[in-house]
Simulated assay, not measured.
Amino acid sequence: MKMFANTNDFLAGRKQVKTPSGGELVSVRFALKLKTTDLVTNGAGAIGILPPGTVPVSLIFDSDDLDTNAAPTVVASVGLLNDAGTDLATVWVSGITACQSGAAFSGTSTAMVREAQSLTSDRKIGIKFTTGAASAQAGEVGLTLIYRSA
């Protein structure tokens, strides 16, 4: 399993993730610059953080055109990363094709809305490419996570 080459300010600890103080919904957009070497089958890595005491509600995945082939193949999944950071331990949404043309995807799933809270630690949100790019092109992906207190 190949992990992503880059990180972002949230993952590096330079920015703090918002934590809801009551019943409100909070949203944070996590952006990540991907290299062509990240866009391979089973390439996976962290993009954001789900803070302790919170649960996900919905997400918006946006992407540059990362597969410039006339018949693009890149497909992504989003969920919680395993402890090693090499694969998704829990898949929230799969079959995302937004990277094929530079688009956005909005969605949720049963697995996502039933995600149990962690009382003590941050959990890393990850992306996994279940199918690699036919003609990889470096660019940015973004994940806007909408979450609430558990």
Score class of each variant (00 low, 15 high):
59 L>T: 02
55 V>C: 10
129 F>M: 06
54 T>A: 09
119 L>G: 15
139 G>E: 07
114 R>T: 15
63 S>F: 05
114 R>E: 15
85 G>S: 07
45 G>M: 07
122 D>I: 02
141 V>P: 06
77 S>K: 12
123 R>W: 06
105 F>K: 05
82 N>G: 11
131 T>K: 09
98 A>P: 04
76 A>K: 01
136 A>Y: 01
49 I>F: 13
98 A>I: 03
95 G>L: 03
109 S>D: 07
132 G>I: 05
101 S>L: 12
50 L>H: 02
77 S>E: 14
66 L>V: 13
46 A>K: 04
73 T>R: 11
79 G>H: 03
48 G>L: 05
101 S>T: 15
128 K>Y: 03
101 S>Q: 10
79 G>K: 02
134 A>F: 10
139 G>D: 08
140 E>S: 10
124 K>N: 07
108 T>W: 08
130 T>Y: 02
94 S>V: 05
95 G>V: 02
135 S>N: 13
58 S>D: 11
73 T>C: 03
118 S>M: 05
63 S>M: 06
82 N>A: 07
111 A>H: 04
112 M>I: 06
93 V>K: 04
138 A>N: 12
122 D>L: 03
99 C>T: 08
107 G>D: 04
137 Q>P: 03
115 E>F: 03
112 M>W: 04
76 A>E: 09
132 G>Q: 11
129 F>L: 07
100 Q>L: 05
95 G>D: 04
81 L>K: 00
85 G>V: 00
103 A>L: 08
55 V>T: 10
110 T>Y: 11
89 A>R: 11
63 S>P: 07
115 E>L: 10
96 I>G: 00
104 A>M: 06
103 A>W: 14
54 T>S: 15
98 A>K: 04
81 L>M: 06
96 I>N: 01
134 A>I: 11
50 L>W: 07
98 A>G: 08
75 V>Y: 00
83 D>Q: 05
118 S>A: 13
60 I>C: 04
123 R>H: 11
103 A>S: 15
74 V>Q: 02
111 A>D: 12
131 T>P: 01
51 P>Q: 15
120 T>A: 05
70 A>F: 12
57 V>T: 07
118 S>V: 01
74 V>W: 00
69 N>W: 13
119 L>S: 14
131 T>W: 01
72 P>Q: 13
90 T>D: 15
58 S>F: 09
110 T>A: 10
79 G>T: 09
134 A>S: 15
107 G>Q: 08
